[in-house]
Nucleic acid binder design. Sequence first.
DNA 1: AGCAACGTTAAA
DNA 2: TTTAACGTTGCT
Length: 299
Amino acid sequence: DSADRHTPASAMSTAVDIAGPSSPDQAHSSAKIPNEPLRPSLKRSSHPYSLSHYISSPSPAVDVKGLIQPSPAQQRPAQPGHAKPRRAPSWPDMWESPSGLHLAHAAELLMRAGLLALTPTTAEQSSLGAQSSQPAKREATEAKGAKGDGEGGGSGPDEEEEDSSGCSTDFQPFLGAWFPFNPALFPLAGFQMGGGHWRSAAMGAEGMEGLVAEGYSPGSLGGSSGGRRKRKRCGECVPCRRQTNCEQCSSCRNRKRGHQICKYRKCEELKRKPGGPGFESRVPRRPALLLGGPTLQNP
DNA sequence: AGCAACGTTAAA
DNA sequence: TTTAACGTTGCT
């Protein structure tokens, strides 16, 4: 157990140990936990659109096919923003889902159920017509992604840059692909939880099974009933950014039995109880997208 | 509240 | 299959 406790000081000097109590751990950082990058899954998707982009009230809905069969402009290679995106959301991926539910299907089902009108919002709408101008914003973002790939640097502050500003929450593996998603959607759309899965009240029993995104389980959203999915580290807080275990705290010392991450690396978000004070920090205060009627659109 | 232990989930 | 670590429970 204690065999690997003492590590060369050099190992430590290179480790970017953000904050944490300037505790003994600094002196005993283990080389066993190398400069372990954040799990890619902690990184946020930077899919260019949030669902709110596709949703608007009374305007004529854009043909779903427009979404399903991406325009050339949409078919860019790109995954903006992050050096190592969890997964490049290639377009083909967008249509195939591990749950077997096709995105096209899902969209159609939602629309039939009257839950979803897929259409770009005004800003987006105007630019969609003008093909040349539309990609401008996205290109800028994509440039970031390309930069990440090119420079191979990866874990700079750049990565986190967007996180605080985004108003919508990425609903990651929605339909097996990256799908920006606002959790507020669920209650508004009448989604219900059952057996650890969300589903639409307006859909059949099968419909949305398995669409629950990790890290956004009902439990983690403050739901009362018992989704047991694990929340994930935010990847942004100081403890999350910490790269070394202290090997001194009880969690480190008791890792074999305790199964707990180093105390100084325990994500601040995960310390909070789901639904507890401050938990909404990950959930937009105001729904950025609206389903089910214009009445909610401009309070 | 903090800790220890264990079950469990999710990723590698 | 292995490993990391979140969730839960029981104890102090």
